[in-house]
Design a protein around this nucleic acid. Structure first.
Lengths: 351, 351
DNA sequence: TTGCGTCATTTGATCGATCAAATAGGGTAG
DNA sequence: CTACCCTATTTGATCGATCAAATGACGCAA
């Protein structure tokens, strides 16, 4: 029953033209005479012809496939972000005629082995890396081997930030958190605290900076610059590891030293959840990542807009190699979106 | 810098043999004389040769690639299950020399269009479907077109259950929930309630049946068969949609009609979370799916063991076509694992 | 009429591997 | 010594597409 698939030759015969003309209709329609083109197109439609992916890849020496690593445990609650990113990426890639292939790896060395395998087998011609760190051997390997890639997440080694060989897309956490602070202030909050990760993680530091900037902005508006509760970052913020339990403890500490808090911004939905549980929902809390949990429970969060990130990543991949030193087009910063959810009963433990 | 990749011919020249012998070393090593084999293997290692994936696929007419759909929103909190399944599948597939390719689709019709695209392009030679329903047009299409596929989730149309053309793997929710009831009873609970989805979803009904069976089992052990609180399924269970808010409302109703509850099993982690929030953690609750949320907050849950599911799915794919009518090997039922977490402070709102 | 340039289309070679069939090199039986 | 078989290896064709170069058709200027 699965009769052999038609080939270019079949189409050519049916349309009364040569193989190459059929190929041209598909790849450079503009060089084919209008009348011929429609005749060939009709034959293609009638036979239900589709180019054989492998044959094409073999001849063109392009895999038209990008590889993405699927992380073992993509970070607890926030794992869903990568998930959504992957979905968006796949969707956008399809639209551009690209395939997305998955691979897994236990660690960086293992991942480099995978690069080797995929590159040597000509199975893939670009990579998307989901989280990189300072001195990441993976990006080094890829650059050294001339493999096109884009990272979701800016390189935190300062030297790499403007490396025109390193293409990246990232979300402007700083702007996102600053905007969240503004929104909270807009809905009446005056003293806004921050629940962050221990200093040192680039991402976390950026988000904290956004909070500080947002708070300072409010101080200026209020005419207060050097004093008042809003000018006391140390007192109004606390640090916690990425776990609900730790977040609860941190929230307890924070409330003890700052009983005047009106609202809180957390560096992640996990911490936001901890804060919400601890406060019983008595304070508005804004998380980060807009995970399904935030949606399910109904608290505010900052959405990374992975769809934009995916689109930008693919655009950058098209530029790889064509870019000059210092080309600003080698990276893209996406502004996230603050999703405010009505305070409502939230955890419903209060009022 | 990216010098051309070595080909079979390069290896053949280096080892002083013919192309075909190199190919044989890779694909049928047993027919090559020991000494020749090691010499060729050495040349392969030295040149860092790897077969060109597309060339091989073209010639062998096998894509060695399985396609998996990435759902738009893979079901709220429980989306992580698919995520973990995908990870496990990718890992196992790699070990078997298979690639995993993604695609997306808005609905069943769209998905069938994708099948068409992938099959006609010879890009893929098997599919894994993640959730099917009664009369699913997708499975019909695949069977009709002779495409190998496996579903994660048994077919709910009774007629299909033994259809030897429909290969499936599923998790035995009934057994899992029954075991959870046993474990709760083991730790002292006597009256165990159930928070389920409205009847009609095959999966949910199975889980409810597991609860009923577990409870009945306890009744027999206790010598009580026809009376006592444990023989009253209607009073001890409630229904809720898959949302935290709905689960809270359902829990409230349930507690109103059964104040003697010692513990609760929920059909999903989402409902379990709702129950936990509503009860403030005063009752042990077991969820389903063992999502990151369950782990983060620390409540018990039933783990689907997606790793086993993935392994089974790939094994079944190897059997597709080779199977006879009524072959019991055309499906596999995996027993999930109950993960009990110490009641601890959980939400810490009590005690 | 001849020559040349342009546009549309065709022809032959090729990408890198494997399939199918042919060949070489022993060994054993008649 | 020939015939025949068996094993190990080689040869030529092929998978389905695109590349690069050749061909044909037509118009226009010399």
């Amino acid at each position: 029953m699965p009769r052999p698939l038609p080939t270019v030759s079949d189409v050519a015969r049916a349309a009364g033209v040569s193989r190459q003309t059929v190929s041209n209709v598909l790849n450079s329609p503009e060089i084919v005479r209008e009348e011929t083109r429609t005749r060939v197109a009709a034959a293609i439609a009638e036979l239900g012809y589709r180019p054989h992916a492998s044959a094409r890849r073999l001849r063109t020496r392009r895999a038209s496939t990008i590889a993405v690593r699927l992380d073992p445990f993509a970070g607890g609650i926030s794992g869903a972000v990568l998930d959504r990113f992957l979905h968006a990426l796949t969707e956008r890639a399809e639209a551009r005629g690209l395939s997305v292939m998955l691979y897994t790896a236990k660690d960086a060395a293992d991942e480099i082995r995978q690069f080797q395998r995929l590159v040597d087998g000509a199975a893939v011609d670009a990579f998307v890396l989901a989280s990189t760190y300072d001195g990441d051997p993976r990006t080094e390997w890829l650059i050294e081997h001339g493999q096109p890639f884009v990272t979701f997440g800016r390189p935190w080694g300062i030297a790499d930030l403007d490396d025109p060989l390193h293409f990246w897309v990232d979300v402007d956490g700083r702007a996102g958190v600053a905007e969240a602070v503004r929104r909270l202030r807009g809905s009446g909050a005056r003293t806004i605290g921050f629940l962050g990760w221990p200093a040192g993680s680039g991402t976390g530091d950026e988000r904290r900076a956004g909070w500080a900037a947002g708070v300072a902005e409010g101080d200026r508006e209020g005419g207060v610059v050097t004093e008042g509760p809003r000018a006391e970052p140390a007192r109004l913020s606390a640090e916690s590891e990425e776990s609900v339990a730790a977040a609860r403890a941190a929230t307890r500490r924070l409330l003890a030293q700052a009983s005047d808090l009106d609202a809180l911004v957390a560096v992640s939905d996990t911490l936001a959840l901890g804060a919400l549980i601890e406060t019983g929902g008595s304070l508005p809390v804004v998380g980060f990542d807009n995970t399904p949990v935030a949606e399910a429970i109904g608290f505010s969060s900052i959405d990374q807009r992975v769809d934009e990130v995916a689109a930008a990543a693919l655009e950058l991949l098209e530029l790889v190699g064509r870019s000059e030193a210092g080309d600003p087009r080698s990276h893209r910063l996406i502004t996230p979106e603050v999703i405010m959810r009505p305070p409502g009963p939230a955890l419903g433990l209060v009022g």
